[in-house]
Amino acid sequence: MRKQKAGISAADEINRRFLKKSVRDVMTAWGYILPALLVFAVFMFWPLIYTVAMSFFKGNTANPTKAFVGFANYMTVLKDPNTLELLKNTGFYILILIVINFLFPYVMAFINHFVMQRGKKLYKVIIFMPSLISLVVGAMLIQWLFNPIIGPVSKLVVLFGGTMPTWSKTPGLVIFVISLVACYKAFGYNFLVLLSGVSNVSGELIEAARLEKTSNFKIFTKIVMPLTSSTAIYVLIMSIVQGVQFVFTPIKILTQGGPNGASSNILYGTYQEAFLYFNSGSASVLSVLTMLIFIVLLILEFKYVEKGVYYEN
């Protein structure tokens, strides 16, 4: 850099140094993302392409030889009545997760920040705690808490004169109980993020509404919700994206999708095809279907949230 030859004008030299520097800067910049990109290339981008390709081949998960079959795998999967059941169950799981992991914490965040007066700080610290607990432990806890004979939940039900059915053998109930594991894991995180979204709403605005005797319900729906919509949509989408993945572990550990597929969802269905029946073609078709569902969510995310959330400052 310093060894510039004489005869070049000062402006030229500055220009050249700037150019050299900026080329070097761009190289450095790419160098810095290179380690991340390498890992992503091998364990994210390549697998994505490979999964799409595999959906057109008939093959065994454990065996590399595959035969091209066009859309045959798609036809098989789409005609299979189990696929409909998987999609239906996935929808049912998502519905429960939205209510318990999005609506509840949203309202609670509002109450915690704007309605409660004192002693409210400690709650978020405790409520966040289960987010650190392993889903395997969560699944085991649910299994014993809801055990029809010795579980405290069953004993409570009996105490109030009811009878506790064997939840793992009861369609419908099985999805609800398994969802509770995912709720236990994600509730605190969602509450935390929503709370910090809600706390960005100006207190004076709420105060002014209070002076006009606006009800808390109206303050929440007419002021807080519109002002926190980007955070809310972010949490809504994350609770779907994570929740659907979080229920995988309890399904695998407690019911293996049973009884008769009544607790399976599209992710567990993929796992089953891939690693229990070794049918990589059908598994990949289910993966592609999963991807399509999540791409819709992704578009929603970037349409409504991206501007507000990521580029807010």
Partner: peptide
């Protein structure tokens, strides 16, 4: 936003 099952088989391979 990509669920782990989508990349699971190729990564296993």
């Amino acid at each position: 936003f990509i669920p782990f099952t989508v990349t699971m088989i190729p990564n296993f391979i």
